[in-house]
């Protein structure tokens, strides 16, 4: 009797395996969850791209919901994303901080002229040193930082309209309502 029941074990195991693998098909291995979520944004001190004499640091993140968008002029996917950011940034009611990653200053400036500049500030990390502290491993990547300067969300890859409406808008509305 018990042995008859045991016969079903392999069947159940195969079904479980199928379920796990099926789910795996729809996961993106490029999206690595950031351990920095709900932690204070790592300290940074980087020159302002448009005015390198001025340094930008964490004080920029105080009392404002900020979107930190990592980009580079050598990044093809960033061009497409930039077109999209330009359409949503002005009405987003949050601060946009561009994070220019491992780029040449002149090329970055040319790129901005060509594709537009939706950012309130742009910090340049030519060496990619601050990027290591932020756990950045590619472009584009986008962080949402709350008014207290805590990272609340990270998006890997270009932001699509769907991502924006589903993941960003509700979160930004919520974060804007939070008090410091």
């Amino acid at each position: 009797m018990t042995l008859k029941c045991l016969r079903w074990i392999p069947v159940l195991m195969i079904l479980a395996l199928i379920a796990v693998l099926w789910r795996g098909l729809y996961l993106n291995p490029k999206e690595i969850p950031s351990p920095l979520i709900d932690r204070p944004a790592p300290p940074f001190q980087l020159p302002n791209l448009l005015n390198p004499a001025v340094m930008l640091d964490n004080s920029l993140l105080k009392n404002k919901v900020t979107i930190v968008n990592v980009w580079a002029s050598w990044c093809a996917a960033c061009v497409e994303e930039q077109q999209f950011i330009r359409t949503v940034a002005p009405s987003s009611r949050v601060q946009w901080l561009g994070f220019n990653y491992k780029d040449d200053r002149q090329e970055a400036l040319t790129w901005l002229q060509q594709y537009g500049n939706p950012y309130n500030y742009i910090a340049t990390d030519a060496q990619g040193a601050a990027a290591l502290d932020w756990g950045i491993y590619g472009t584009p990547e986008t962080f949402v930082v709350d008014k207290k300067g805590f990272i609340r969300y990270k998006h890997i890859g270009p932001i699509s309209l769907k991502d924006w409406q589903k993941d960003f808008v509700p979160l930004l509305t919520r974060l804007n309502q939070e008090t410091v």
Partner: peptide, 8 residues
């Protein structure tokens, strides 16, 4: 490494 990039 883990504090920046996670257990991954």
């Amino acid at each position: 490494l883990v504090t920046r990039y996670g257990d991954y």
